[in-house]
Design a protein around this nucleic acid. Structure first.
Lengths: 144, 144
DNA sequence: CGATTGTACTTAGCCAAAGTAATAAGCTAA
DNA sequence: TTAGCTTATTACTTTGGCTAAGTACAATCG
């Protein structure tokens, strides 16, 4: 395995504290009041995967199964997600988005523009470029 | 203000979900069992600033003053922080680290190496370079 | 000088989100 | 067929923020 430089150590330490602060702010300044960031994230995952069982979703989101059960129940209550019996295994459940969820996601994407624009004001073009590069790395880090 | 590209929008959206996932993992996989990431972050801030009042710390960490009061109380209870009266203004309090905190931080830094090394295995040199660049941008984003 | 207004921290109580433990139902393989 | 594993769920707890209200002190205005 590769050795870490002093700079790497400092960077990860900085990323760590920045991530904690950002996560707090994202919780408060969420664009859609009715959906927590995690619920939003689950809808995003479903957008990529099409459909999945609660267990799969829990693993992907790095959340315990009971939490995912709760999140799915919430989303189902809001009509954003459908729970269907698994064709082969009657223990399992298949979760998929409803058309209402797709409409909601589209609208939320629009509303997010205002917030993103405001956020982007504080960054230079160069910084935004760095962020574009960093997004997939953070994504990878989150799944490691 | 500058307009955002489609890529920028996608990047910020990805950063958002990655940050939420990472923050959850950081909460669980913390190196020191007895200290929450926020408490750790406060000690780090104190390491940079030397000493500060609870209000200053709350602003730096983007937390409400009552939360900081509780965090400082917790740290004081563990003997990691000292609360002294402000020399000029008897309303204020000056918080500073104890030598025990410095020892703790040093030990934690050592222990973090194992976790960092494991984490680094999954990243390429290029990705680590991106992370080094991204750290200050995330920091800036968290304070915007 | 005294009253009013403002500031800094604290206390008390609430809430959201995630975790653990225990349960129920269903699959699988000896 | 039964013993043991897996999946989802339910019930309860923990954590870590928040707001509102309270206390003590400072500063300012009449």
């Amino acid at each position: 395995m590769s050795e870490l430089s002093e700079d790497d150590r400092a960077a990860v330490s900085d990323v760590r504290s920045a991530v904690m602060r950002l996560s707090r702010r994202l919780r408060n300044q969420r664009v859609d009041e009715s959906l927590s960031p995690t619920e939003m994230s689950v809808l995003g995952t479903l957008a990529r995967c099409g459909s999945a069982t609660p267990g799969e979703l829990a693993r992907k989101e790095h959340v315990q199964p009971p939490s995912m059960t709760r999140i799915v129940a919430m989303l189902e209550g809001k009509g954003l997600v459908r729970r269907e019996p698994h064709p082969d295994d009657r223990r399992q459940v298949v979760v998929s988005r409803t058309s209402q969820a797709e409409a909601m996601l589209a609208e939320s994407r629009d509303r997010r523009n205002a917030w993103l624009a405001e956020l982007a004001e504080g960054l230079t073009d160069e910084e935004r470029a760095i962020l574009r590069q960093a997004a997939p790395v953070l994504e990878k880090l989150a799944h490691l």
